[in-house]
Amino acid sequence: MITRMPTESPALGDDLALLGLLQLVSPALPIGAFAWSQGLESAFELGWVSDEASLGEWLAGVLDDGLAHCDLPALAGLYTAWEHGDAEAIAEWDVWLAANRETAELAAEDSRLGASLARLLGSLERLPDSGMLPPDAGYVTLFAWTARMRGVTQRQALLGFAWAWLENQLAVACKALPLGHTAAQRLVERLRPALVVAVDLALELDDDELGPALPGLAMASALHETQYSRLFRS
């Protein structure tokens, strides 16, 4: 009896691709994503987010005005750029995303997670060819590379990214608010369809509609720099 092992470099969207996506978005991925709250911890401190209802509003708002207009379209652009081996477009998206980060901590989150993911990929011998990766590449740039390399489709890469964001934000809330685990699951139930809407929107927007519109989050994130007691790095 011959057992055929599926090989890496899977066909787009096959079983291995799905598993590759689950691996990439897992909280167990050792890049330290759990340490960053994207301004949410500060929003708790300021009293702007205080319970399940206000957290739901905050997350729905950030998903629409942040992810759908910024991270997700950049991820889509980066995915396409990796697909075509277009180093110039990869560098342009990487710089664009960095320039859109509103505060020191949001910028640091991007670059630290990017560096961690690059280190991990290096030790798995899964880094792209040298010369393709911009210097100090951000997290989204490396996420796009990994998803593409694993055979994840563009759309599912975006869904996975949005899912990882939601799960991480809820983990922050469970630790720091604190939010009950059942309440967190209620929010997942409510926001899961919104993730799909955000991905649809991200894939449709024109270039001149891109960029986050999160002045409150930016304020919270900058105030977090001087927050007296904090669990998270952003």
Binding site: A43, G61, D64, L210, A213, L214, G216
Partner: peptide, 18 residues
């Protein structure tokens, strides 16, 4: 790069993230 769309009818106008 920064973009501030100010639309009083949009949820972000009163939302805390906005």
């Amino acid at each position: 790069l920064e973009r501030q769309p100010l639309d009083p009818l949009h949820p972000r106008f009163h939302g805390r993230w906005g």
